[in-house]
Design a protein around this nucleic acid. Structure first.
Lengths: 162, 162
DNA sequence: AATAAAAATATGAGTTTTCATCTTTTCATA
DNA sequence: TATGAAAAGATGAAAACTCATATTTTTATT
């Protein structure tokens, strides 16, 4: 690997115009999302789960027996990846596959007793964490954000059945 | 792979209590972020870049010559991954490494002419896309969200120098 | 000044993730 | 009621990612 060694005598080297990212909605949203989640995601790993696995548990906690495709969309996981995550969670005894009697292409995913217990624990921890997080933020920033993203989520998922 | 085949005669199989995710701040935020970004990320791929590469370009567009560690935090990319992404972008002629004269542990990343041009194009496309996106949303939802995440970003990054 | 601790980056190896594609099953329609 | 298109999942192979750790350089302490 060759690296030039150049003394920093050049001009401030910015974009010349207004900075972009501090005013870019998609960056700000992603960055805020990542920063806020970091802490709880760390906790999730402590509990022996990766973030996508936690998302799967949470989805099933709310609505057990979803099909893989739907789970994938809701949990923001690409389908073939979810298939393999489910393989692993199945092996670990957290959930199980059941073929849908009415449409045999579909595979429905159900939490096992163990998986349901873990999901319930984490959901309750997540709720508690959210309370603390919001309390830590100044003003009503947390409430504001929650109200706004709730409305937005409704709008953006308007087309989706259920 | 063994899959039970079970007829769906069981109870609605929900959590029994209030659904969690539709009221969970971190999920709503991540979900909204992903949904809003999807479209532009697709465009980025069309342009031959992966999302993390686009983030690197955007960061450097705003502030050329950043060191890898800082770039990693800002672009939400794990350090060793960023090192390799930079390898690739270097090979493609989009940016180059320069060792920092004053602190020779540091490697500063600079856009090449080509990289700067690509970054400028994408930034301008991103700005245009944001306008369209916000226009598409009902009420002042887009503006509301932007104002809120801007404040939040400030709060959450308060500790970070610059 | 010598030395320990910390910071910045790189790298090997193992695991994940992705992409395209395959199979199976259902749906639409001629 | 055949038949082609679409939907749901699974899977192989290649690429990307992560984790722990190594290396180099700087900073802080004695």
């Amino acid at each position: 690997m060759t690296i030039k060694i150049v003394e920093e005598l050049e001009a401030p080297a910015t974009s010349g115009t207004q900075p972009f990212l501090p005013d870019y909605l998609l960056f700000l949203t992603a960055s805020v999302s990542a920063a806020m989640s970091e802490e709880f995601h760390e906790h999730v790993r402590t509990r022996g789960l990766r973030v996508p696995e936690w998302r799967v548990l949470a989805c099933l906690h709310d609505d057990d027996g979803q099909m893989i495709t739907r789970l994938a969309r809701f949990a923001m996981i690409e389908q073939s990846r979810l298939t393999r995550i489910i393989d692993q969670m199945d092996e670990r005894g957290l959930l199980e596959r059941r073929s849908d009697k009415a449409d045999r292409r579909r595979v429905r995913i159900f939490l096992t007793r163990t998986g349901a217990r873990l999901a319930a624990d984490l959901v309750s921890e997540a709720r508690a964490h959210e309370k603390r997080l919001i309390k830590r933020l100044p003003d009503g920033l947390g409430q504001d954000l929650k109200a706004t993203v709730k409305r937005l989520h409704g709008v953006l998922w308007a087309g989706e059945q259920d």
